[in-house]
């Protein structure tokens, strides 16, 4: 195995016409990683407050996500109930074990708090952040958020506080590095709309292997943020 390593690195250096980089050059390259430099970031996301939230909503809808705006967390269960009613679904949800979600009043729901099972149709989760430039949700794995929750159930309902919306991908990486200084979580998943495929005669269809629908419950918490 290490033979392969030596062969490849040797070939790379031969192709580049040099030996291993000198230590001082390596040090310089490493120091750049500690403070990663941003490349050109599109101006599109260079907004704040309601404009930034507006851009997120526009872009998320463009990617076929549905966005519903709520004034605070306590409205979440009712919004979920209405969504289920609209879609003729029973009040069974798979709820991510996040404290803010768990603390809500889920009276009248059948709530499953473990990994999704074959029969689970609806997942309700939070999310770490969002990038307005493309209406993208940033979801992280961890004890409070199984990755399969984002993928297995047919309906994914995501609760997103407006205060977690940033303009660009780079902004969300800055947030992530603050929250996880040593290493990113196992999975950082960017979600932009519900899953889709065009593999049969290039006919676009929503709902391939992931969710058929992506419903974003956007909490307007900008004032108290």
């Amino acid at each position: 195995m290490s033979a392969g390593r030596d062969i490849i690195l040797g070939r790379v250096r031969k192709a580049l016409g040099r030996g291993p980089l000198p230590p001082e050059k390596q040090l310089k390259l490493r120091s750049r990683l500690a403070h990663p430099k941003r490349n050109l970031v599109p101006q599109r996301g260079d907004l704040a407050g309601p404009e930034l939230v507006g851009l997120f909503v526009t872009m998320a809808r463009k990617a076929d996500a549905e966005v519903e705006r709520l004034s605070d967390w306590s409205q979440v269960p009712n919004a979920v109930r209405q969504y289920l009613d609209r879609n003729h679904l029973p009040l069974n949800i798979n709820l991510a074990p996040e404290p803010l979600l768990q603390a809500l009043d889920w009276d009248g729901f059948q709530v499953w708090r473990d990994l999704p099972r074959r029969e689970d149709k609806v997942a309700v989760t939070g999310c770490f952040a969002a990038a307005a430039e493309t209406g993208t949700l940033v979801v992280t794995s961890g004890p409070e958020h199984a990755t399969s929750l984002n993928l297995l159930p047919d309906h994914h309902l995501v609760v997103l506080p407006a205060s977690r919306i940033r303009g660009s991908y780079e902004d969300t990486w800055d947030m992530l590095r603050l929250a996880y200084p040593d290493a990113p979580p196992r999975t950082v998943l960017w979600i932009t709309g519900p899953s889709r495929t065009g593999d049969i005669e290039q006919t676009l269809q929503l709902g391939a292997h992931g969710p058929l629908r992506l419903q974003i419950l956007l909490i307007d918490d900008l004032d108290d943020a």
């Binding site: 990994l115 493309t134 990113p184 196992r186 998943l189 960017w190 979600i191 932009t192 709309g193 899953s195």
Partner: peptide
């Protein structure tokens, strides 16, 4: 590629599941 602003899933995977992770 497809003319999408961004594909639906962009996934960054770092190592195996962590202690306490329910899946992965």
């Amino acid at each position: 590629a497809t003319g999408q602003e961004l594909s639906v899933y962009t996934t960054f995977s770092t190592g195996p599941r962590r202690a306490g992770d329910p899946d992965g």
